[in-house]
Design a protein around this nucleic acid. Structure first.
Length: 141
DNA sequence: GGTAAGATTGTCT
DNA sequence: GACAATCTTACCG
């Protein structure tokens, strides 16, 4: 699993300039989906706190070809995630995150991908040893 | 109402 | 590595 954090006061975050119709879910309660679309691609986020969210960048598929869930667009498409899911609960919505797993591997961090501001902040995270992460691969510190 | 830009991806060089 | 695809949101007038 590979994720990126978007925090309060983060100029790269959609929530940076305050609530709008698009990012309203980010200002709602935690545990909801925030789904946005860009270049005809959907990206799925989980709202962690008010004004903050975690982007799901990639995951290792339990079945199917390796790499089919690499990248926010592919991951969202594979799970059928679109704007209809925006604002719904990650526990009871159409697409659900069932259970957390206590990681047995080291968590690596690195620069986020595809943004033009605050690119130096190491807010991208993934487990050491997983194959499906975007380049450049985060490194241990 | 018009326009510029984007948390991406795939294709071409 | 660079760029086009293609459309929604944001921002300005």
């Amino acid at each position: 699993m590979e994720t990126e954090a978007y925090l309060v006061g983060d100029p790269a975050s959609h929530a940076f300039r305050g609530p709008t119709e698009r990012n309203a879910a980010m200002f709602g309660p935690a545990g909801r989906w925030y789904v946005f679309r860009i270049h005809q691609v959907h990206c799925a986020n989980v709202v962690t706190r008010r004004g903050e969210a975690v982007l799901l960048r990639a995951a290792t598929p339990r079945e199917g070809p390796l790499g089919s869930l690499r990248g926010p667009g592919r991951l969202a498409r594979a799970f059928g995630i679109d704007r209809r899911l925006d604002g719904s609960s990650i526990r009871t919505g159409a697409v659900r995150i069932v259970a957390g797993v206590r990681p047995t591997e080291r968590i690596l961090s690195g620069p986020r991908v595809g943004i033009s501001r605050a690119t130096e902040r190491p807010l991208r995270f993934c487990l050491a040893g997983v194959a499906d992460v975007s380049a450049p691969r985060p490194r241990p510190r």
